[in-house]
């Protein structure tokens, strides 16, 4: 668990061309989403009645064109990406929090408690959870906060399973015994040995959760069950675009491509991280 291991993982990640390219793409997309408004004179909500549903062009400042209310699609796409990403981050944090604590408790307690807790996870993961989230969003209304929580609450199952398995195996490792025999306190054991061993897989899976959550949010928003007008998320923009595609294809293609690119690069970064950490773990 030395720094050498992390360096090794970093070296492997750096050698993976696809993963590095994907990481750069994520960086560019995130920067675009953050700076979006500042790059373009238009405002996300402002209506340009002189240019309704105009195609993308450099001549007028609407680089990605406008929608049928004359709102600038460049700014709206980036604002939507910003919203999708922040929902992704918050919901991932929620699911990591629940998943890690649930998995750690199950793995640490073991025995009957572990069996019961895992049975619950097995049952839950057999259910159409997306329908329950649809349910929740309808019951409590369309609050963004709820959307964060609901998505996070669904995404923790896999994380809990991974952490539980790791905790269980770490608990049986000899070095924990050795540390205990050597008189280390429980909190030091957890900090020095358990946390570093969990950290790699948790980071990897958290990275892979973000695109899932972004996809989920876009899905709900596409159906009209997520983010509501006048706010835009990539999902609502794609829904509008799909409705207008016969006359204004760019309204579908631009947010669709942006979302696909975002998901693709996030997934590839996650895969690259997993491979890098996995292989370094084998080398150890």
């Amino acid at each position: 668990m030395s720094g050498g291991w992390w360096n090794e993982a970093a070296r492997r990640f750096g050698a993976d061309k696809v993963a590095v390219a994907a990481a750069l793409a994520v960086l560019v997309l995130v920067l675009l989403a953050l700076l979006g408004g500042a790059l373009n004179p238009n405002d996300a909500q402002a209506l340009d009645w002189s240019r309704i549903a105009t195609a993308p062009a450099l001549a007028h400042a609407h680089w990605f064109g406008t929608d049928r209310l004359g709102r600038d699609l460049f700014v709206r796409t980036l604002a939507g990406a910003r919203l999708s990403l922040s929902i992704g981050l918050v919901a991932t944090a929620v699911s990591v929090g629940i998943g890690v604590s649930y998995g750690a408790v199950a793995g640490y307690c073991g025995g009957r408690i572990d069996q019961l807790m895992m049975r619950l996870i097995e049952t839950l993961s057999g259910l159409p959870l997306i329908f329950f989230v649809i349910f929740l969003t309808v019951i409590v209304g369309n609050s963004l906060l709820l959307l964060f929580a609901a998505i996070g609450a669904v995404g923790w199952l896999t994380m809990a399973r991974i952490v539980r398995g790791l905790t269980l195996s770490i608990r049986q490792k000899e070095y924990i015994e050795a540390a205990r025999a050597g008189g280390l306190t429980a909190s030091r054991i957890v900090l020095r040995h358990v946390v570093p061993n969990l950290l790699g897989p948790v980071i990897v899976y958290a990275t892979l959760t973000i695109p899932q959550v972004v996809l989920f949010e876009s899905f709900l928003s596409f159906l009209g069950l997520g983010v509501q007008e006048p706010r835009a998320s990539l999902g609502t923009l794609i829904a509008e675009g799909a409705a207008e595609m016969e006359s204004a294809a760019w309204m579908l293609l631009i947010p669709g491509a942006f979302l696909t690119l975002l998901l693709l690069s996030l997934n590839l970064v996650g895969d690259g991280l997993r491979d890098a950490l996995d292989e370094s773990a084998h080398v150890r």
Binding site: F222, G235, I238, A242, M245, G256, L259
Partner: peptide, 28 residues
């Protein structure tokens, strides 16, 4: 990898745009 990533709600309108609107092989 691409197939896993592209969301259904992007893919279907895209297919409809290509095969329905432009090529007119299939109904939108």
């Amino acid at each position: 990898v691409l197939g896993i990533t592209v969301p259904t709600f992007v893919l279907l309108p895209f297919l409809a745009l290509v095969f329905g609107v432009y090529l007119k092989w299939l109904p939108v």
